[in-house]
Design a protein around this nucleic acid. Structure first.
Length: 284
DNA sequence: GTAGGGTTAAAA
DNA sequence: TTTTAACCCTAC
């Protein structure tokens, strides 16, 4: 891989969405060879288009539950940067139908999915494997199923998990026997101290505080709950504020497009009039 | 030609 | 250190 990674530009992304709107997702070659988009994609292959679309949609690859929440904001922000409203609507139409559009912007910081609070993959993996208590270990599907039962997973979770498992194997924390993963014996005490892995960070924190707080434990807990609740509300308010400002920007952009269109229309009218006059003169 | 899994550089 | 995203490989 001698070449540095070629980051996708906004123009390319826009062209991709427009191309998908026109030809449909999966028709990468058609999009690539479309005269309108070909110049934009001069450095891209159909594979690149496919990969980019996959990154944008991040469809889940082995399981059906599209509990997707990560990809929507990306698409949404992408749409917001798209210059054509018509194209945008079309683009939205080609988003895989199972895409839960109603969860757009559901990544608001109100706790729907917060990477910081999500258990680390390592913990989840170790927990899944040890919960199985199977000497042969667990394969990736079983691990995914286990984790899905406990919490929502991102749509590209299988992919992430696959990378993670490989890394753990190379780090010597897991053994891979055929397609099953086993926790190395020397990892067991570290990976599963009591129920550490099943506790969310906030829970762990709360739990750690209790022994020393004694009589104040109830007060502390109430205060903590109140602070968490306040934090959520603040985050929610911030999110709404952000959405509002984005909406204002969007409306301004549309207004500008209208003005531009009017200018173009005016120019076209003038050209048309002059051409008509020229014809009359010629005929005369 | 496309889909999907794997790899890895870059970003967070 | 973890996650993301671009690139690669391979099966169909």
């Amino acid at each position: 891989m001698g070449n540095p990674k070629l980051k996708w530009t906004a123009e390319e992304e826009e062209a991709l969405l427009s191309g998908i709107a026109r030809h449909g997702a999966g028709k990468w070659k058609n999009i690539l060879t479309d005269p309108e988009f070909a110049p934009v994609f001069s450095k891209r292959t159909n594979i690149d288009l496919k990969d980019k679309w996959r990154n944008l949609t991040v469809s889940s690859t082995g399981h059906h539950g599209m509990k997707d929440k990560t990809r929507i904001p990306k698409l949404k922000s992408l749409m917001a940067s798209t210059s054509s409203n018509a194209q945008r609507n079309e683009s939205l139409a080609v988003v895989p139908h199972e895409t839960p559009l109603d969860v757009v912007m559901e990544d608001a910081p109100n706790g729907t999915h917060e990477p910081k609070n999500a258990p680390k993959y390592n913990d989840m993996i170790f927990e899944a494997i040890s919960a199985a208590k199977d000497a042969k270990g667990l394969d990736i599907n079983a691990i995914i199923t286990f984790i899905e039962k406990k919490q929502e997973v991102p749509p590209n979770f299988r992919r992430l998990l696959s990378s993670k498992l490989r890394r753990l194997v190379t780090q010597g924390k897991l053994d891979k026997v055929q397609n099953c993963y086993i926790i190395k014996k020397d990892m067991l005490p570290l990976s599963l101290p009591e129920s550490k892995t099943s506790l969310a960070p906030a829970q762990k924190e709360t739990r750690l505080q209790h022994p020393r707080t004694n009589g104040h434990a109830m007060v502390d807990t109430a205060m903590e709950e109140a602070s968490i609740s306040a934090a959520y509300k603040i985050a929610d308010a911030e999110n709404k504020s952000f959405l509002a400002s984005e909406a204002v920007k969007e409306s301004e952009r549309v207004m500008k497009m209208c003005e531009d269109t009017e200018c173009l229309l005016q120019i076209a009218k003038e050209i048309h009039e002059r051409c008509s006059q020229g014809k009359i003169v010629l005929l005369a």
